[in-house]
Amino acid sequence: MAYENIQQDMKAIVGQWVTTDYLREGELFVIGCSTSEVAGHPIGTSGNEQIAEVIFNGLQELQEKSGVHLAFQCCEHLNRALVIERETAATYMLDEVSVIPVPKAGGSMASYAFKKMTDPVVVENIRARAHAGMDIGETMIGMHLKHVAVPLRFEQKNIGNARLAAARTRPKLIGGSRANYEDTRLNDTCN
């Protein structure tokens, strides 16, 4: 897999995210990523920090353009804990845990993010508070998303060889048949 192709895929998906109104400054954006799947190998078999670097750089661009806080999901060996900036942990009142992700326990993406973030910490979970996210290679990020998750259908369907799934969340509908949802973020999902 050529790194230039992965870079182009990331540029495409970042461009598609920023042209929507799905992301707001200060929101949590969770990323699950199997660099093995991106390279065309089964999940957990061929982690690659060079691929992680390309993906991380694309996600930094998304962060710069949208103002979201990035949360990188670790692999199952760390129980899907997340790498975030210390400032984000403080903002969302999340408790730090004592672990440093490495490629074989945490995954190449989380390991790379931990090395490159300004002041990274690992938190056990984000208590289903993520506002949106991307799952690159079917790593199962749903547990981190707020209720109600809305799947997104972007033109970009893969990053490298890995399938891409994306979602945003919306507030729960309350109020029954007399409720009015006009002029809310729900317009595209209520009709």
Rank of each mutant, 00 (worst) to 15 (best):
Q63D: 12
T118A: 09
R129L: 14
Q156T: 13
Y112F: 14
R163C: 02
V99R: 14
P101H: 13
P151R: 06
G176N: 08
L94Y: 09
L82T: 08
G26L: 04
N180T: 11
V148N: 08
D188I: 11
G44K: 09
M117A: 11
I6D: 14
K172I: 14
L23Q: 04
E49Y: 00
Y181S: 03
G175I: 09
S34P: 02
I174C: 06
N79S: 01
P101K: 13
P171M: 11
R168L: 01
M117S: 04
S111T: 15
A128H: 08
R24E: 14
A90C: 04
V68M: 07
A2T: 10
L70T: 02
A90P: 04
T19I: 12
Q60N: 14
R127V: 10
A130H: 01
P151S: 06
Q50W: 00
Q73R: 11
W17K: 02
E64Y: 13
E37H: 15
G106D: 13
M10Q: 02
A149G: 12
I174P: 00
P151V: 04
D9R: 10
G106H: 08
P120H: 05
N125F: 04
I13H: 09
E155R: 04
T91K: 10
F154P: 11
S46P: 03
D183G: 09
V68P: 06
I43C: 13
I84T: 04
K65H: 00
A128I: 03
A179T: 01
S34E: 08
C33F: 02
E76D: 15
E25A: 11
Q8S: 14
G107I: 07
H77K: 08
M93V: 07
E96M: 09
H41C: 10
Q7T: 13
K146C: 07
A162I: 12
P103V: 14
R168K: 10
R24I: 06
M93L: 09
G67P: 13
N187W: 01
F114L: 06
M10T: 06
T189W: 00
I31A: 03
P101R: 14
R129H: 15
R168Q: 02
R129K: 15
A113Q: 05
V121Q: 04
L28C: 03
M10G: 03
V102T: 15
N48S: 12
T45E: 08
V121A: 05
G26E: 08
E76W: 05
P171I: 03
M134F: 02
E64M: 14
M117K: 03
C33A: 04
P103N: 12
T88Q: 12
H77Y: 08
N125E: 11
A71Y: 05
T19A: 15
Q8G: 08
G47V: 01
V150D: 07
N187Y: 01
H147P: 00
I100G: 01
D95E: 12
T169E: 02
E124P: 03
G106E: 05
A52L: 07
L164G: 07
N180V: 07
E37G: 15
I13A: 09
K11I: 06
R24V: 10
R24Y: 10
R127S: 15
F154C: 13
A128V: 02
Y181M: 09
G47F: 00
Q16W: 12
A110K: 05
K115E: 09
E61Y: 01
C190K: 13
A128W: 01
S36L: 08
G15Q: 13
